[in-house]
């Protein structure tokens, strides 16, 4: 349970970072005309991804044990 949630958060965070990175960078885009990100607020997604990954450590330590609930 604890490990599962933490691992999910790390994976989700890394996924968010990848989406955010490629959403913000028009690598491979066929036009140089516009330098806007492909996905709205993609840089925020990237930052969110970084935050989610490191928040996983807090979750891992702070998640209450199952017995106590």
């Amino acid at each position: 349970m604890r490990r599962g949630v933490t691992a999910t958060m790390v994976v989700a965070g890394i996924l968010l970072m990848i989406i955010g990175y490629f959403g913000a960078a028009p690598w491979g885009a066929d036009t140089v005309a516009n330098s806007d990100p492909r996905i709205t607020l993609a840089p925020t997604l990237f930052v969110l991804g970084v935050i989610v990954v490191f928040s996983a450590a807090i979750v891992y330590e702070l998640l209450p044990d199952r017995e106590r609930r």
């Binding site: 036009t31 140089v32 005309a33 516009n34 330098s35 806007d36 990100p37």
Partner: peptide, 14 residues
């Protein structure tokens, strides 16, 4: 200048 602009304010038209 287009490459380094951190927010895409500097851009090149087609």
């Amino acid at each position: 200048c287009v490459k380094v602009c951190p927010v895409g304010a500097r851009y090149k038209r087609e």
